[in-house]
Design a binder for these strands. Structure first.
Lengths: 227, 227
DNA sequence: CTCTGTGAACCACTTCACAGCA
DNA sequence: TGCTGTGAAGTGGTTCACAGAG
């Protein structure tokens, strides 16, 4: 009777694609919850998330049995379980390394706060930036203060928004002061030490993927009809 | 003798993961080129990009035969081929829909320009934002001017930086005025019309992936050794 | 002998299809 | 009957291993 096993099993090895989808499911459940819906079937949830229904059930099966046969899932319960599984039942503290345009923008990006991630500081090697603040008031510290800031503010997540050339050393600096989860916006591939999770967000790759699509489309005899 | 076939074959169906890696290879080749290196083997390139050497060869094989057996690839040549394949031999014009923190930040992000993508305008539905400018001078237009701006400025790429609730309609509006390549920063899954490429960048999912890692790490008896 | 290009083996994730419970 | 949970089948992408060109 593991119907509502709160503690996950060893969670041997959950595919990253699965955890990514859990985030998507959670957002759909949020919407269903505010819409006042009480239960949802794997099919209905899958349709909303643009995935396969079996996929939803398989993904959830990694963590327990949350559904009721013949009925579906209780929206509020499943929402709570996913929040716990994803570790969203507590807030996280975050530093952003690199106070250029991107770093500044990320510091002010409300989406992070809304998801439970509080940016406590920006860091940069440029002396003239130290002491300035982002629009919403996040202060820029000198990079040499990294260890102190991380310890004092109980930081568990680092954001890398430095130029390509500094990416590897920035990651290493973060790891050295105990940060184990890193969101990396710098372009080049970074060698990740074991026990540390680096999530790469490469805007250049995304753009070039679009560019490839446009180029390929153009090579073929542009098949766009005009009705 | 297809050794340097400039025109790609039908390019039947290239996996997205392959084109993403092409971007990574290209960046490594840029570095090798400025470092003055003339040739590179698939092994050496793979090591730099943190992938398998066979992977590099397979990826390139979708587009032709660019190497010389016993030698490797000529850095400058391969770089040129990849730029052409990815459609980076011309600049693209881009609008950003949504002039909130994220949209404004993206407008000022130099990385886009560096990759050949010029942001020509921001658009927003909020009247009071119309006429204002980003720090680097990109002007905010009213959303109703989308069609006109896209036509006048020859825009081929749209960036969606609007709140979740407006994501789907924004994508549809872009498609309606002829934009076929979209970079989407809004959280919810978006139904994509055929013939249109939407590249989703979900910062919330990325963060929650890190959160999951931290939570899982905490559930186990934190196995970090202290030597 | 070196290193590319590629068929074959492998692996991971997805989808199907159905047993089993409400 | 309706829908979950799950073994089995299917799919796509990665890695291996080798033939063959230089």
């Amino acid at each position: 009777m593991p119907a509502t096993s709160r503690k996950a099993p060893p969670v041997e090895h959950v595919p990253e694609l699965t955890t990514n989808r859990l985030s998507v499911y959670l957002r759909c459940l949020d919407a269903l919850d505010t819409a006042g819906q009480r239960t949802v079937s794997s099919r209905a949830l899958a349709d909303r998330c643009l995935v396969n229904a079996a996929q939803v059930r398989k993904d959830l099966a990694y963590f327990g049995e949350f559904g009721v046969r013949g009925v579906g899932y209780t929206v509020a319960d499943l929402r709570g379980h996913l929040r716990q599984i994803l570790g969203l039942d507590r807030r996280r503290r975050m530093v952003i390394v690199g106070a250029g345009n991107l770093g500044m923008a990320l510091a002010d990006y409300a989406g992070f706060r809304d998801q439970g991630f509080d940016t406590v500081a920006l860091l940069d090697t440029a002396r003239h930036k130290v002491g300035t603040r982002s629009r919403t008031g996040i202060e820029v510290h000198h990079a040499s203060e990294l260890a102190e800031v991380v310890a004092r503010e109980d930081v568990s997540v680092g954001v890398v928004a430095v130029p390509a050339a500094a990416a590897q050393e920035t990651v290493e600096a973060l790891v050295a002061v105990g940060v184990r989860a890193i969101l990396d916006f710098a372009p080049p591939p970074v060698r990740t030490p074991p026990g540390v999770k680096v999530k790469h967000v490469d805007l250049a790759v995304s753009l070039e993927s679009l560019s490839f699509f446009l180029a390929a489309e153009h090579h073929e005899q542009t098949p766009a009809p005009q009705p």
